[in-house]
């Protein structure tokens, strides 16, 4: 007979697997409060909140934080426009080259980040574009498009073509249909896609190291601390805050789309 209950060993293996996924992250929270300055000693000799105050007063952290915020916001906005356009076109019609275009959209995240990074770097170098905030944004928008696209195209698939025809029959022009019919229907999918794109951009490091000039985003700041640790407890605090900054948009994206068949985030 077909059993509806999992065997004990499967339940243990699945449970341990989930623990394996989450324990390391929990540890970050513990270490943000440690009193130990020089090493990663476990268990922490004592707990303190003073590192939050120290981190708060560091201008380099604030600068990196604002830059990350700025880059993520602009890259997300660009990706939202471009991703929506391409998903509208792809769900609207079958046309020559459609397969190739869908491959092209996927490419920036299918290829290893180091390749996207070095490709953009050589291209910027050859065109004589100086590395700046702009080049970071260009890089981020490239791989954020696919995130928005995935969410929007899933919603388009569920949307019946009939409501667009109904809108036209009732006398709405293309722009009115977009504003009053399409946009409200796409709304949560775009919001979710935007949140995920934001989270992805906010903590992206691989492409950024190639396209940034002298500036540091928060992940680049963290990477430098990882390679050459200066003040470990401050890094612990920043790590926890970065985790929180990406955690919240992801959770929001999930709640925005959880009632649909295609939940945001099932593909990164």
């Amino acid at each position: 007979m077909l059993s509806d209950r999992a065997s004990l060993s499967l339940r243990i293996a699945a449970g341990l697997g989930l623990l394996f996924l989450h324990l390391p992250i929990a540890l970050i929270f513990l270490y943000a409060f440690t009193t130990e300055e020089r090493s990663y000693a476990f268990p922490p000799p004592g707990l303190t909140t003073k590192w939050f105050a120290v981190a708060w007063q560091r201008p380099d952290i604030w600068e990196a934080f604002w830059l990350s915020l700025q880059v993520a916001a602009i890259a997300t906005a660009l990706a939202l426009v471009l991703g929506t356009l391409v998903s509208a076109a792809m769900s609207k019609a079958r046309f020559f080259g459609r397969e190739q275009i869908s491959l092209l959209i996927l490419l920036p995240i299918a290829l290893p980040g180091v390749i996207t990074g070095i490709a953009l770097r050589t291209a910027f170098g050859e065109m004589g574009i100086p590395f700046s905030t702009l080049t970071i944004i260009l890089g981020h928008a490239t791989f954020c498009i696919v995130i928005v696209y995935n969410n929007a195209v899933a919603r388009f698939r569920r949307l019946s073509g009939g409501i667009l025809e109904a809108s036209a029959d009732l006398g709405a022009n293309a722009f009115q249909t977009f504003r009053h019919v399409l946009l409200p229907n796409l709304g949560t999918a775009l919001l979710a896609g935007g949140m995920l794109a934001f989270a992805l951009s906010f903590d992206e490091v691989i492409v950024t190291t190639f396209t940034a000039g002298q500036q540091s985003t928060i992940p680049i700041w963290m990477l430098e601390e990882l390679i050459r640790p200066r003040q470990r407890p401050v890094t612990n605090v920043v790590a926890m805050l970065v985790f929180a900054a990406t955690f919240i948009p992801i959770l929001l994206a999930y709640y925005l789309t959880r009632n649909g068949s295609d939940v945001a985030g099932s593909g990164k």
């Binding site: 996924l21 992250i25 476990f42 903590d203 999930y254 985030g265």
Partner: peptide, 29 residues
């Protein structure tokens, strides 16, 4: 399960690597 898989997928890559640096350190957990 869904969130349990999604959150680690999307949460910061560097923070995850950093967490493992803490775990694997000689004086670590």
């Amino acid at each position: 399960f869904y969130l349990g898989i999604m959150l680690p997928l999307w949460s910061s890559y560097l923070v995850k690597v950093y967490a493992w640096k803490l775990i694997l350190a000689k004086e670590g957990i």
